[in-house]
Design a protein around this nucleic acid. Structure first.
Length: 490
RNA sequence: GGCCCGUUAGUCAAGUGGUCUAAGACACCGGCCUUUCACGCCGGCAACAGGGGUUCGAAUCCCCUACGGGUCACCA
């Protein structure tokens, strides 16, 4: 059972779950599920200043929403806990102490201000901003003196001055770093908190993580981590650095590029199925030509061999297309449920919709959903089913209302409809067909003005669908309103 | 700036020395369907960053250049 697949996703709770993070989580999760391994969630919250509980909650809920569950981690616990780094401080201290005892790490009394100053100077003179190792060989007396001055030390890892550190990356092969580009980096801050490169390794090792699948931005940090593994005497995991997701202008994805977090996509009406499907395709390629996959299908197909190494620019248009696909494929009742808050936000339905409202909503959603791509757009496209005093599309007015006989045709059509005892798809359409034939005009000549009259728009669901959903009374009212409107046109 | 990674159409991508006069998807354009729009279906446009090698043969291997990204914190 030693070679069991154990992977982790270790976000720092300093904000929303970014789509890059979501993809990393997804790849890890898919890899675990495909191989019958474990997916562990760990919260890397050692940055006291930026970590928040709210963010942790948000990340957990975003993962759940995507359909990503975890075998060990917050809420569910597990045999290698705790799964919050802030609760593992003793472990890091113990490990660091061990390294100090072995002479592999040492106390450093330089202050952040001094270091920043030296870094600035080094940069200015064009040199690499490396720590100069001045606290490496402090004598006991010197240390005592510093501490007497009230100086709280940080702990640095002593790394080899020469030689090289090799990172074997699953996707890129051996990546070699010369040790002289590295320096003795801090593993425990003066406030006692561990630094990422240290805590991460301690936890990954203790949690028996077998494969580290994470974003490429960590590749340059990996030699440092390898050094920690070696100092601690742990076996190295398999590293697999997935390329990054970039914004359309090839820069790092940020707020100014629109939605970047799972929460934002969720709120703007994207479905988890679509987001997951799309994200999976960013960096991973399925074997065949299909691109539409459910989560179980992805689990079945996902292998690391088919993950690429080139950075991907995310394309909101394809995501949106995919969302439209799922919006239409999903069970209608499910979509109706999901769409409720969007209708409520626009005050189209009440806070606690009655059965009657729900029945009406169902019809509206059914008529409208094939034409739009997000849940929010469903509500936008449905507005005239709820609001009577809409304005008429300007182009439409020019095209359909300013015609010679517009008012007359509408009046005639209204008359026919009024005479119907049964107001159905069949009877309304038959009425229109007959009328157009009698008038010797194409059905479109009355259909288009009618659409504009009862919806204010020139496009949308089939005209007779709209009529039937609205009902006879509203249809006639709206036609009358349009007739008056046309008469007042000069 | 040093180091590291990457570079197939506008975008995602297949492709692991010959089957590539380079797949598929989104977008875009055209057509069909149709009362409109969308869906769907059919078709089209469009790419191996540049230059040197290696080889009988290179998108695939090597080198250089260019461009892009990452990293060099008492952030993760």
């Amino acid at each position: 059972m030693n070679n069991k697949v154990r992977v982790r996703f270790a976000p720092s709770p300093t904000g929303n779950l970014h789509i890059g993070g979501a993809r990393t989580a997804l790849f890890n999760w898919l890899f675990a599920r495909h191989n019958g391994g474990s997916f562990i969630l760990r919260i890397d919250d050692t940055d006291l200043a930026r970590s928040t509980e709210e963010s942790t909650r948000g990340i957990l809920s975003a993962l759940r929403w995507l359909g990503i569950d975890w075998d060990e981690g917050p809420v569910v616990g597990g045999p290698y806990g705790p799964y919050f780094q802030s609760q593992r401080l003793d472990i890091y201290k113990e490990m660091a102490q061990k390294l100090i005892d072995q002479g592999k790490a040492y106390y450093c009394y330089c202050t952040p201000e001094e270091l920043a100053q030296r870094r600035k100077e080094a940069m200015a003179s064009g040199k690499a901003p490396k720590y100069d190792g001045r606290c490496r060989e402090l004598s006991l007396q010197e240390r005592k003196r510093k501490e007497a001055e009230g100086c709280k030390p940080a702990i640095r890892l002593r790394i080899p001055d020469s030689g090289e550190t090799v990172v074997n990356d699953l996707f890129r092969g051996d990546v070699v770093f010369s040790n002289d580009v590295l320096d003795d980096f801090i593993i425990i801050k003066s406030n006692g908190m561990p630094v990422y490169n240290f805590a991460c390794v301690v936890d990954d090792a203790l949690m028996r993580i077998s494969h580290i699948i994470r974003a490429e931005e960590h590749l340059s940090n990996t030699p440092r981590q390898v050094l920690v593994y070696q100092a601690l005497g742990y076996q190295l995991p398999v590293f697999a650095h997935v390329s990054m997701i970039l914004a359309p202008d090839r820069s790092k994805l940020s707020k100014r590029h629109g939605a970047t977090s799972v929460e934002e996509f969720r709120d703007s009406g994207y479905l988890p199925e679509a987001l997951v499907n799309y994200l999976a395709l960013l960096g991973w390629a399925p074997e065949g030509e299909d691109e539409i996959f459910s989560l179980p299908e992805l689990v079945n197909q996902f292998i690391l061999d088919r993950v690429g190494k080139t950075a991907a620019i995310y394309d909101i248009k394809k995501l949106t297309w995919m969302n439209g696909h799922y919006l239409n494929q999903e069970d209608l009742d499910l979509i109706v449920e999901l769409v409720i808050p969007y209708f409520q936000r626009k005050n189209l339905i009440s806070e606690d919709p009655s059965q009657k409202e729900m029945d009406y909503l169902r019809k509206v959603v059914e008529a409208v959903r094939t034409r739009v791509k997000t849940l929010a757009e469903v509500a936008d496209a449905a507005e005239y089913f709820y609001v009577d005093d809409f304005s008429y599309d300007e182009k439409g007015v020019r095209k359909h209302f300013r015609k010679e006989n517009a008012a007359e045709y509408l009046a005639k059509a209204k008359e026919r409809l009024a005479a119907l005892s049964d107001f159905t798809l069949e009877t309304t359409e038959a009425a229109y067909r007959e009328l157009s034939e009698e008038l010797g005009i194409k059905a479109g000549e009355i259909i288009h003005p009618t659409r504009l009259a009862i919806s204010g728009r020139t496009m949308g669901p089939g005209l007779f669908d709209i009529m039937v959903i609205l009902g006879k009374e509203k249809t006639l009212e709206r036609m009358e309103r349009a007739i008056q409107y046309i008469k007042n046109l000069s």
